[in-house]
Structures are given as structure tokens and as C-alpha cells.
Simulated assay, not measured.
Amino acid sequence: MGNIGSFLKNVVTEMRKVSWPKRKELTRYTVVVLSTVIFMALFFALIDTGISELFRWFLAL
């Protein structure tokens, strides 16, 4: 049981050393991540639709 208490104490100590991003940085990072995810989702949806139509056209011959 002493090992768990020591572990949690060390976790708290290390978490105090962490350099957390400021609100402005966090907002910027969030916008970058969300815009990248949306762009990639649209890109792959477009590619998937194109490949599906190509297969439909090929199979209809």
C-alpha cells in the first residue's frame, strides 16, 4: 500500500512541473487540429466517392 501512496505523491510532484499551454495557444492548437480533421475527412470522402463511382462505372460495362 505504501508503494501506491508514494506513486501518487510522485505523480502530483511531476504534474506540478508540467508546462501547460496558455489559453491562446490552446485555442490555436484546437483550431488547427479541428480544421485538419475536417479537411482530411472531406478529402477522404471525396476520394472514396470517386473510387466508388469508378467501380460502379466499370461494373456497369
Score class of each variant (00 low, 15 high):
M1L: 14
V32Y: 09
E25K: 00
Y29V: 13
V11N: 00
S6N: 07
I4Q: 11
L34C: 06
G5S: 14
K24S: 13
F55E: 05
F43Q: 01
V11I: 01
I51T: 11
E53V: 07
M1V: 14
G50T: 01
V32F: 07
R16G: 06
N10V: 14
T13G: 04
W57S: 10
T49L: 03
L61A: 12
V37P: 01
L42K: 00
A41L: 08
I47S: 10
V37Q: 08
V31S: 08
L8E: 09
K24W: 13
G5E: 04
Y29T: 11
T30H: 11
P21A: 00
L8Q: 00
V11F: 00
T36M: 07
I4T: 06
R56W: 12
S6A: 13
I51H: 11
W57G: 11
R16N: 15
R56P: 01
E14T: 04
D48L: 09
L8P: 04
V32A: 15
N10A: 15
E14L: 14
G5F: 09
V18N: 09
P21D: 03
S35P: 02
F39E: 03
A60Q: 10
L34M: 07
I4E: 09
F55W: 13
S19H: 14
L34Q: 11
A41F: 03
R28F: 14
V18K: 02
K24Y: 14
M40V: 00
V18I: 14
T49F: 08
T30G: 09
S52R: 11
L42E: 00
P21N: 13
Y29M: 08
L34K: 09
F7C: 04
F55A: 03
T49G: 04
N10R: 08
M1K: 09
R28N: 02
M40R: 08
S19C: 13
W20D: 05
T13W: 09
E53C: 02
S52C: 05
V12M: 12
A41M: 04
G5A: 12
F44T: 00
L46K: 03
D48H: 01
F39N: 02
E25M: 12
A45N: 03
S6K: 11
F7H: 01
I4S: 06
M40L: 15
D48P: 00
S52G: 07
P21F: 00
R16P: 08
S6L: 10
N10Y: 10
W57N: 04
S52F: 09
S35G: 06
V37R: 02
S35H: 12
L54I: 07
S19P: 14
V32I: 15
